[in-house]
């Protein structure tokens, strides 16, 4: 469970997130939408404790993230998988190594890494590409590798910041199906997106942020309010 309780974040004097409160339950699939500069990425950075909130409290699985001592941050991040718009794969590592690398961080043994990596590769549908390098893959495939890396340590929460931003509609749909599959397996998903058709078709909870404030929060929502059923 994620709780934002009256969270405010300033960049210098400018407020990026203002008095924001929301609760996301375990197993939910939530779209975070809003204009550019609305404060969506800021929310995610706060959640990862990349930046500190100026006011308010953030909880993840009943653990307070705000005010968490620095040494606990790595452990906190291991509970969260993260996927970016630009994939962020390591070009000199193979698909397999890109994923295994996330497991090295928890000092998993090679015996444990291999089956885990193969399992997630199968889940994302790339079991035959493990020896390839990122530049030998299509963009959609690269994003699948990034997702595989994000979930290989079995996080309870997967955050995706515009994961389909660089992809054509068909490929984007493939990614959405994959995220749905991961969500079905029990992982909470928070996805930031500008893709109206995806939000409209998925019919998930939609949280709309504008100028750092939540302006709408609807279950089974659509991208724009007037299309709401």
């Amino acid at each position: 469970m994620i709780v934002f309780d009256n969270v405010t974040k300033y960049y210098d004097d400018k407020v990026a997130v203002e008095d924001l409160s929301m609760i996301i339950e375990d197993g939910e699939f939530v779209f975070l939408v809003g204009k550019s500069g609305a404060g969506k990425s800021t929310c995610i950075k706060l959640l990862l404790k990349e930046i500190e909130a100026d006011e308010g409290t953030i909880l993840v699985d009943e653990r307070e993230v705000t005010g968490m001592p620095k040494r606990l941050v790595p452990k906190h991040r291991r509970k969260i998988g993260i996927v970016f718009q630009n994939f962020r794969l390591l070009p000199k590592k193979t698909v397999y190594e890109n994923i295994a690398f996330a497991m090295n961080i928890v000092y998993a043994s090679r015996r444990k890494i291999k089956p885990s990596v193969q399992e997630v590769l199968k889940l994302v549908g790339l079991e035959d590409k493990e020896k390839m390098y990122p530049d030998q893959l299509s963009e959609g495939e690269q994003q699948r590798v990034a997702i595989a890396r994000a979930i290989v340590n079995k996080p309870t929460l997967l955050i995706a910041d515009e994961p389909t931003g660089n992809l054509d509609p068909d490929t984007a749909w493939g990614i959405m199906e994959l995220l749905q599959k991961i969500n079905d397996a029990g992982t909470t998903i928070v996805m930031v997106t500008h893709a109206k058709d995806i939000v409209d078709r998925m019919e998930k909870r939609v949280i709309v942020i504008d100028d750092g404030i939540i302006v709408r929060d609807s279950k089974k929502g659509a991208y724009t309010e007037d299309e709401e059923i």
């Binding site: 790595p74 906190h76 291991r78 390591l90 690398f101 996330a102 961080i105 890396r149 994000a150």
Partner: peptide, 16 residues
Amino acid sequence: EDEILIMKYVGATNWF
């Protein structure tokens, strides 16, 4: 640099 950034995202400690 990229590698370190990702390491930190997936929860690597500073010592790691």
